[in-house]
Nucleic acid binder design. Sequence first.
DNA 1: GTCTATACCAAGATAGAC
DNA 2: GTCTATCTTGGTATAGAC
Lengths: 206, 206
Amino acid sequence: MSSVSTVEPQTRMKSEDRRELVLEAAMGVFGDYGYVGATTDQVAKAAGVSQPYVVRMFGTKEKLFLEVLHRALAAMLDAFRTALHGDPSVELERRMGLSYFELLKKHGLLLSLMHSFVLGSDPVIGAAARWGFLEIYSFLRDEAGFTPLQAHEFLSNGMLANTMISTRMGDLVDEDPRVREMLEACFPEKLGIVLELGKLHRPAAR
Amino acid sequence: MSSVSTVEPQTRMKSEDRRELVLEAAMGVFGDYGYVGATTDQVAKAAGVSQPYVVRMFGTKEKLFLEVLHRALAAMLDAFRTALHGDPSVELERRMGLSYFELLKKHGLLLSLMHSFVLGSDPVIGAAARWGFLEIYSFLRDEAGFTPLQAHEFLSNGMLANTMISTRMGDLVDEDPRVREMLEACFPEKLGIVLELGKLHRPAAR
DNA sequence: GTCTATACCAAGATAGAC
DNA sequence: GTCTATCTTGGTATAGAC
């Protein structure tokens, strides 16, 4: 079961819709294999179009990735923003946490971001990742009104969570009791959901 | 200025020493470009040997990376262990923190680890990364005597720090005042050192 | 708007000499 | 123990047809 579903044979489509489809597919593939590891052909297959067409649409693989990155960031900020203005009877922390879990459902979203964060040495992707990170921090400070300390707390919890998801620590949950304990500390009361999502998002072998 | 220094023309060497040299070089290159992005040729150049020889020594690029990963993990645990049994008049938190900064000096060490953590979908590297992560957690619990909560705290702070270093957020420190604030929250009293290290470890363009 | 065919290059791995 | 030469594969990108 792959996280990237293949799409039916090519019918003519409005370019906006097709673009959407390809971006969606790309997010999944980049999430699974990283910017360098992913191939435009995998993206094409996942979107049900030909490889050259993918390149044609976005110019280069790099530009495609940047677009994915941009969307992932936007979606994330959007989710947090929604949480921010959500039901005030629920604690803000909790609302943000729930948004985060919504994001997890879009598997490639977090993973594509994570891959970009580790590419700081790449002149193009790295720069984009830095500005993206800063955007998140600025949101927390300026829009959400967090103190630097609160922002740090929020980000560190998030990063550890993201790392564990990227590493697929859930796959080890039955191998060693320590893993369950660790994941429970990291995802309080949400272990079940995380493990479920982890099962769904297993990429096919290349 | 590259983080990977090139080595003088080839003289015959004891295989153990040469191996050491290549592994050292590989750690730097993998740290800068990631497992997929790094080439055996880059490693070879950095170590001052021929590309086929690198492959010859380790069989495959994958095996080379696994070896690097193994060493990075070992070095990390070693550093933490030393800190653990260090001067008891200094607070444990502080000792561990200092060890962490020692590790930062070996640029490729943290970065290679980070790259492995994001490759959870890779059947070989991903598995190794998971066990490595678990090893660190187990150390914190079993040897350092941390509670799950303490371990979580330690790991989340570490992961955020690692991510910021991977992303090279320091490169943005003069572009936006928020960046300095953020880094200060993340590396209390150590901002200067981090920025210095960041400057040293800038890889050459490919 | 989308495909097929293909050029072109980079990179891992192998063979074999020294 | 180490190199040079080379095979092979896979992957991005281009050309051009439909």
